[in-house]
């Protein structure tokens, strides 16, 4: 084997990874070649110096730092990670603004219908007379607007799945003086009968709840005496509905009992 051949194999020779016959040939060459022996010694001592580089302990607290970073990275939601930052950053502010607006709207629209049904005598008599539901026949100089108000919804949903029965409806007429005539009101008798519930569907009750403001509204005689029914029809709180009847923007305030403010 030549010096060149030995130098090519010297690394494998050091590691003992040469086949037996090749190792024997290199060994024979080294016995006779001082230059190759010197190279072998120099290489072995250079590699030996690497043992000076002992393993060093890494800085302490590495896991705590890494854990923090991992938790930071896993914090944002998938959506947030998928969207660019300019998209999701304004979302919390917009959501907060939305909540504020919704809350304001809910407060403005007043308390629930059940509470309102208690506070009946809010609308002044004169206004009440104006809003009273007329007789079924058309009044001279007036206009009747037919408004179909849904009666009390079914007290409880059907216990089994299936088509829900249609809600009953009752006609309510509101006279709007000075308005052009609208189509005549349809008497309740002329309304089509509600469909029968599907066989096997349990219907808890189709009778209107007498306590409900909507049930009051379903009776033409009672409807316009009830502020809650006005609420059901107009969507306004009794305070606002009453205020709309006054020309003096302040006068109506004195006509409202303290209970109405609660």
């Amino acid at each position: 084997m030549t010096c060149r051949g030995v130098r090519k194999r010297i690394s494998l020779y050091i590691d003992g990874r040469l086949p037996e016959d090749a190792r024997a040939q290199v060994g024979r060459h080294l016995d006779s070649c001082a230059a190759c022996r010197s190279l072998l010694a120099e290489t072995e001592s250079a590699l030996e110096t690497l043992k000076l580089l002992k393993r060093e302990a890494p800085p302490a607290g590495g896991w705590e730092r890494l854990r923090e970073r991992l938790l930071e990275q896993s914090g944002p939601s998938r959506v947030r990670r998928a969207l660019p930052a300019w998209w999701w950053k304004p979302l919390p502010a917009a959501a907060a603004a939305g909540i504020v607006v919704l809350s304001a709207l809910l407060v403005w629209r007043g308390p629930s219908g059940e509470d309102l049904a208690v506070s009946r005598p809010t609308v002044p008599p004169a206004v009440r007379g104006e809003l009273r539901a007329p007789e079924p026949a058309l009044q001279p100089g007036g206009t009747e607007v037919a408004v179909a108000v849904p009666a009390q919804p079914v007290a409880a949903p059907p216990a089994v799945t299936g088509p829900r029965p249609a809600r009953t409806a009752a006609p309510v007429r509101i006279r709007a003086s000075g308005s052009p005539p609208a189509r005549p009101a349809v008497p309740a008798d002329n309304l089509p009968a509600p469909p029968e519930p599907a066989p096997g569907v349990a219907v808890a009750s189709l009778e209107p709840d007498p306590e409900s403001p909507l049930a009051l509204a379903a009776n033409p005689d009672d409807v316009l005496d009830e502020p809650a029914a006005e609420l059901a029809l107009t969507g306004l709180s009794p305070l606002v509905a009453a205020a709309e009847q006054y020309t003096d923007p302040v006068a109506w305030v004195y006509d409202i009992s303290a209970e109405d403010w609660l």
Partner: peptide
């Protein structure tokens, strides 16, 4: 690896 050792030496 042979070249790497030569380089280090």
């Amino acid at each position: 690896l042979h070249r790497a050792r030569e380089s280090f030496r």
